[in-house]
């Protein structure tokens, strides 16, 4: 899809679920993001969205998602309004989400919503006259995280086809794992999974990966992973998933990456993590040449700039 086609495809479009994206859509966003990559061409940020307003409605705590959306809009010359917690808003008086979104939509050109209830962003997009971007709806979807993960993988390895990708940590509840694994099924990849028995991949997703012929190994420790993986995507295992704190302590130490544990994979391995990390990735991993998780976070601004520009930008009128 060329630039004009991409703008036409995305103009005014809400971004709710990674499942709504076909391969061409994913590639269109990744291609568009190159223009805004600080390591790419020029570093002059153009005021492409001057006069446009982004509303960030965050019903749950967030650092990276909210700030990177706001940074993306500001760098494109637009303006930002919103809230980072709902207690001072009419939501705390019991106003419905649908009503609130209808009103906020009249104050802005695009909305980013984070909400604890699954499906909130879909409902918001049905109530809104302006596009809604899902900044995370409960344990369901976080599509812009998936886009920046894909962008980081392609940028750091140079490709999306022909990769062996391993996911480690909370495979059962981790929405980033589910969305990225689904998105990667659009490409010629092999997916492996490393996690404790109690946090194995949901059956539906496992069957989908297997039916696509893309299932690599399913193991319970990093030591059991094949040495030739290209990407290791680590996620945090949350304490609240374990009724017994002792079980958590056992699992926590088993799924901790250290520089020494990564030696056998070689320097070409790329290590991603959606952040925040607690202690599942040791500080000494930061010195590994393939540790790209901070770059991954930085790419969040780049990809969100591309998305905002595709949805609202001048090219969208072409």
């Amino acid at each position: 899809m060329d630039v004009t086609e991409a703008h036409r495809a995305f103009r005014g479009r809400s971004v709710i679920s990674a499942e709504d994206f076909h391969k061409e859509d994913l590639l269109a966003v990744l291609d568009a993001a190159r223009r805004f990559d600080p390591e790419g061409g020029s570093h002059q940020y153009e005021p492409l969205l001057q006069g446009r307003i982004l509303a960030t409605l965050f019903h749950e705590p967030s650092t990276r998602t909210r700030l990177s959306f706001e940074a993306a809009m500001l760098r494109l010359g637009g303006q930002v309004l919103g809230f980072a917690e709902p207690h001072q808003t009419s939501f705390s008086k019991g106003e419905s989400l649908a009503d609130a979104i209808r009103v906020v939509a009249s104050y802005c050109d695009v909305i980013v919503l984070r909400h604890p209830m699954e499906g909130a962003a879909r409902l918001a997009s049905e109530s809104s006259e302006v596009p809604v971007l899902n900044g995370g709806d409960g344990s369901n979807q976080h599509p812009t995280q998936t886009l920046l993960d894909l962008y980081t993988i392609r940028k750091s390895t140079g490709r999306l086809d022909g990769l062996k990708v391993a996911f480690m940590g909370d495979l059962r509840y981790g929405r980033t794992v589910h969305s990225l694994a689904n998105a990667l099924l659009n490409f010629d990849v092999q997916l492996s999974f490393v996690g404790p028995e109690s946090l194995r991949l949901p059956d539906v997703l496992r069957q989908r990966v297997e039916a696509a012929g893309r299932l690599g190994s399913e193991v319970s420790s990093v030591e059991e992973l094949d040495e030739d993986i290209d990407v290791l995507y680590a996620t945090r295992i949350q304490k609240e998933r374990f009724p017994d704190p002792l079980d958590y302590e056992r699992v926590r130490s088993a799924y901790r990456l250290t520089r020494a544990s990564l030696d056998r994979f070689g320097d070409d391995l790329k290590i991603l993590h959606p952040l925040p990390r607690v202690d599942e990735v040791a500080m000494d991993v930061d010195l590994h040449p393939g540790a790209v998780y901070f770059e991954q976070a930085r790419n969040g601004v780049t990809v969100r700039m591309a998305l905002l520009h595709l949805i609202l930008g001048e090219g969208a009128d072409a």
Partner: peptide, 30 residues
């Protein structure tokens, strides 16, 4: 924790797969 159990929403489910069918919630995707 699906939004349709909190707000006044007409639910929509999509039929998936072959019989016996499963149905996916349009909102929360479960």
């Amino acid at each position: 924790t699906c939004i349709t159990n909190q707000e006044e929403v007409v639910t929509v489910f999509h039929r998936i797969g072959d019989f016996p069918y499963r149905f996916r919630c349009h909102h929360c995707e479960r």
